[in-house]
Computed example of a mutant assay.
Amino acid sequence: MGRVFVAGSINMDVVATAERHPRIGETVAGEAVFYFPGGKGANQAVASAKQGVPTTLVGRLGADAFGQELRTFLAAQGVDLAFVKDTDNMHSGTAIITIADADNTIVVVPGANGLVDADDVAAPALAKGDVAVSQFEIPLPTIAAFFKRARIAGATTVLNPAPAKPADKALLDLVDILILNETELGFLTGTELSDGDPPARFAEAARSLAQGRTICVTLGKRGVLALADGEPLLVPGREVKAVDTTGAGDCFVGALASQLAGSKALRDALTYANVAASICVQRMGAAPSMPTAEEVSAVLSSRRPGEGRDP
């Protein structure tokens, strides 16, 4: 079995719940406030580790109380933190999240995440069969350095370009598997897309990014559309009552990486990751909501596997 290495952000999520989101300039009364470990890198690492796959996180924490809490939590989830540094005179990454009617708004303050550099990602020794994962909450040049080392080692590179921002061709050329939602797909391709568009519309947009790589477009409860070797594959989603969607995409990425490290076929890995994400959204919080392998297996064993179909 290969290992999963995640180079990415580590945040404390400060979550406020309310009946509805405030309009610009408006104040609304909240219902409760919570503090949850999060950050896209940490979320994806926890999602992978909880599937029983050796998972290493590469990143930075601030020398503050949040940093200490985050380190303790991540270690308890089984994530290898040997390459997570404490950074003096800098606060840990923080996300301010409002949740209303299961939808969220998020403001991320990078803190120590913005200082993750090429030396940090040069430290772990990757090997053939490993999976290297990153997202856009650390500097893009750092991601490029990480993926270059992964490619040399024969590892599979997985990029989740979120939150969406411009990425140059040189970085995308280092990516084997690109995992993104419809918003990020629209941003990177300059295409107007909406939730209700038919799968064929997403497949058409994704083709411009393919260029020899696999594209996975997450579509929420509709499932995921993958474009592999130019051929579309639609894996249906699992409808559940969502409580908090904050970590759903990260859960999908981490769970998928864990299955790829175990050499699972793409269709099976997508189905597994879909189920993991459907469990995640039924709980509050990001990293704490990630399911275990036993929980995912229980759902998979109780349902007929979804059939992929051409959009």
Rank of each mutant, 00 (worst) to 15 (best):
D103K: 10
G93A: 02
M90C: 15
Q51M: 14
G78W: 03
I99C: 08
A100Q: 01
A47Q: 11
G67M: 12
E69I: 02
N104L: 10
G93I: 03
L74N: 05
D101E: 15
T72K: 11
V84L: 12
L74E: 02
D86Y: 12
V58K: 03
G59N: 07
S92P: 02
G67P: 03
A49L: 11
I106W: 11
P54R: 12
L70Y: 00
Q51R: 06
A100H: 11
T56D: 02
T94S: 07
N104P: 07
V84F: 10
I106Y: 11
G59K: 07
L57F: 10
A76F: 04
D86T: 15
Q77Y: 01
F66Q: 08
M90A: 13
T98L: 13
G78V: 09
T55H: 06
N89T: 08
S92R: 03
G62R: 01
P54T: 05
Q51G: 00
P54E: 14
F73E: 06
A95H: 08
T56A: 13
Q51E: 09
T87M: 12
S48L: 10
A75L: 10
D101G: 09
G67W: 12
L74W: 04
T87D: 05
E69L: 14
P54V: 08
A76S: 15
D80H: 10
T94W: 01
T87L: 14
A82E: 08
A100F: 00
G93K: 09
G62H: 05
E69K: 13
T56P: 04
P54A: 14
F66V: 02
A82M: 03
V58P: 00
L61N: 01
G93H: 07
I97N: 07
V58W: 02
M90P: 00
S48Q: 09
V108G: 01
D88Q: 14
R60P: 00
I99H: 03
D101H: 14
K50H: 11
I106A: 08
I96N: 09
